[in-house]
């Protein structure tokens, strides 16, 4: 479902003496449907960079990143957008929303984008918000004023609204209490059970052991630092 071959990434900082930073070299990995793979490695090893590349947010210098058979490195913006809408979900660490939009519609939006009717989309959104213990009185408010933990749960609800065949999870259990952590882990297990291919970053070791089938240490793709 997710297949990377010989992917590498360098950042060139033109305005800072044209510094060239090699971040990842020759990454190849495959994630099958129903499988959850954890990216591990020390801070700065390139876990988030790799995840952003798979989402098409960072550009790869070489190699191929195939999601559902489509190579995102070679795709046009509209093709990447279509993949993101239908195939590839991403739960980032931060919620970014249009001001003023109610929480319920923020969560329902990914479903609306694939053509689900407003009532059905809102029903699903309500169900997820209730599961994640967001009080009903907050549903009609914009999440911009919510606490960090509440925003993270809204973000997770939004990420799990549409049953994407492939998902990227960046620290989905960070800043959550035990009860909500449990809800998120069962959402991940349910996604695996329906056949989703998942790549995640989990600093929470117990969570990683519970939901992940394999670990990939990203530092083995880190190029040797030339002076």
């Amino acid at each position: 479902m997710i297949d990377l071959s010989n992917v590498s990434k360098t950042f060139t900082l033109h305005n800072q003496g044209s510094a060239v930073i090699k971040v990842l070299n020759d990454v190849s990995l495959t994630v099958a449907p129903g499988e959850c793979v954890a990216l591990t490695g020390a801070s700065g090893a390139g876990k988030s960079t790799l995840m952003r590349m798979i989402y098409g947010n960072y550009r790869a210098q070489s190699g191929a990143i195939r999601v559902g058979g489509v190579d995102l490195v070679q795709s046009e913006p509209r093709e990447i957008i279509q993949i993101r809408r239908e195939v590839l979900g991403y739960v980032s660490q931060f919620l970014r929303v249009v001001p003023r939009v109610p929480t319920l519609d923020v969560v329902a939006e990914p479903l609306r984008a694939v053509g689900v009717g407003i009532d059905e989309a809102r029903t699903r959104a309500k169900d997820l918000l209730a599961q994640l213990n967001i009080p009903e009185r907050l549903w009609s408010l914009s999440p911009t004023t919510f606490s960090g933990g509440e925003q993270q749960r809204v973000n997770i609800a939004r990420g799990f609204a549409h049953p994407y065949p492939a998902m990227l999870l960046d620290e989905p259990t960070a800043s959550l209490d035990a009860a909500n952590r449990e809800v998120v882990l069962s959402l991940i297990e349910a996604a695996k059970a329906r056949g989703a291919a998942i790549i995640g970053i989990f600093h929470d070791e117990a969570a990683r052991t519970r939901v992940c089938d394999r670990e990939i240490d990203v530092s083995r793709f880190t190029p040797a630092r030339a002076a």
């Binding site: 950042f11 060139t12 900082l13 033109h14 305005n15 952003r52 098409g56 947010n57 960072y58 550009r59 913006p77 990447i80 957008i81």
Partner: peptide
């Protein structure tokens, strides 16, 4: 020229890098 979030988060050209930063 490219996908909006990619151009803003991983700008390739010197001018875009200056603009974003």
């Amino acid at each position: 020229n490219g996908l909006t979030d990619q151009v803003l988060d991983d700008p390739q050209h010197a001018y875009t890098q200056l603009l974003v930063s």
